[in-house]
Computed example of a mutant assay.
Amino acid sequence: MHDQKTGEPIARVHVTGDAPFSSNLDGTGQSSITIVVNDADEPWTPEQVDAMFASNARMLVRWWGEHGGAHPDDFPMVAHKIESDDYDRDKGTVTVTAIDVNDFADWRLIDGVGADKNSTLTITNRSPAAAVSATYARMMQWNPDWYLPIDLLPDEAGSFSGSWVFWKGVLISDVLKEIKDRTGVEVYLEPYATSTGGVRFTQRVGAPINTGGVHINIDADENPIAGVHYRRDGVNQVTGVEGIGQGSGEDQQRRSSGGTIIIPIRDTRKTFPDMTGDPLQEAVDTYYGAHIDPAVQWDIGSFTIGDGWTPDMCVPGRVFLLEVHGDPRIPDGVHAVRVVAVSGGNGRQLKPEVQ
């Protein structure tokens, strides 16, 4: 257990059962643990449970390493904000549920409650990464009660600009979504161990996020993956996109994107209800560019930790460089597939989701 504001460790807890967890680039990761609280030798008190698993004030961190966690040389697989605890009186257990720390962005306006209605967040000519970082800075800037252990990125010039005013009820997550829609970037808060055994978060921003490659010869006897499937899917392939923006009826803002025709015409519409002008065009172009070609989808049943294959090789943003030769369906060569999500439990086997 770690403090949510500082990321510093509070205590280790001993769990029973599988203790499932997941981590996703889209910020929907979650985890849970179950602990026994009616042990005859060391029973818990209601006050201890309340303090240890305080909703929104504690983090559940899943560590991997030789030091039992909360150590700079161990690896935090996930660090999630505790949301709830459920006591089963018959079993004498408490099940704690935690979710991605980015959930705070759904619960913070661009200023504090009761702020001047004209308070405005303005970002001018910044890179997508700098725009994201400015948004997180806004989320934490007001006083210590707003603080979270999120590192900010260096400022960087670019072409992104936007302005959001408080009276419209804009959430931090609304701003992040607009940045992602207009620029095509992904945003992920990646946990890392500090020198004191605490946890902080690095902002990963990319189109797409890529934190380095891991070469795997899938025909080798010593390789960590199993259950490989390969699929080509054209369900979302398009030749053109008509983007529909703010407004109604004939007055609705519209922008289009197209021009690459490699199949019979397959056009579609996409709605961006809050956008107009250049931001709308950026969003339409981004969507079109991502769906010109059919998607090649790999599925990997498992990644097993051990024999030089470490858990940090199978986290969101990592790229598996899969070497294949002589396969009847998969072309020869090295195929790059990116981990976008991973799940697991108490064992050495992880389940990656790749693209």
Rank of each mutant, 00 (worst) to 15 (best):
A19C: 15
H291R: 01
V296G: 02
Q237T: 15
I216S: 03
P76A: 05
A341Q: 00
I261H: 13
T194L: 11
V342P: 10
Y192I: 09
S119D: 11
Y147W: 14
G158E: 14
I35P: 11
I33D: 10
H14A: 12
V78L: 06
N236I: 08
R348N: 12
W142L: 02
D155H: 02
V78M: 08
P208W: 00
E353L: 01
D219G: 07
V199I: 14
M77F: 05
P224F: 04
H80Y: 01
T276G: 10
G68A: 10
D174G: 01
I305A: 08
G212V: 01
R62A: 10
N102V: 14
I110T: 01
P316M: 02
P352F: 00
K177H: 11
I300Q: 09
S55N: 04
G344E: 09
G69M: 03
V96R: 00
K81F: 04
K5N: 08
Y136C: 00
M313Y: 06
V187M: 10
G347Y: 09
F104T: 10
N125I: 10
W298D: 04
G317Y: 02
L176I: 12
D181M: 04
R231T: 10
G212I: 07
V15K: 07
M140Y: 09
D181P: 07
S127R: 09
P352L: 02
T202H: 00
G158D: 12
Q4H: 09
P72R: 08
A40H: 04
V315W: 09
S119N: 06
E83K: 15
D299K: 13
A11K: 11
Y192T: 10
I216Y: 06
T16A: 08
F166S: 05
F75Q: 06
H215D: 15
L321I: 03
V354I: 06
V78D: 09
R254K: 15
E156C: 01
N38M: 15
G27P: 03
V187L: 05
Q246M: 06
I218E: 05
Y192S: 06
R254N: 06
G240H: 05
E190V: 03
G245K: 09
W107K: 14
R138C: 15
R138Q: 13
W142G: 13
G198V: 02
D267A: 06
M140F: 08
F104E: 06
D100Q: 13
V339G: 05
N24I: 04
R138E: 13
N346F: 07
P294V: 06
T16N: 03
T28D: 12
V94H: 02
T122E: 04
V165Y: 15
T28C: 02
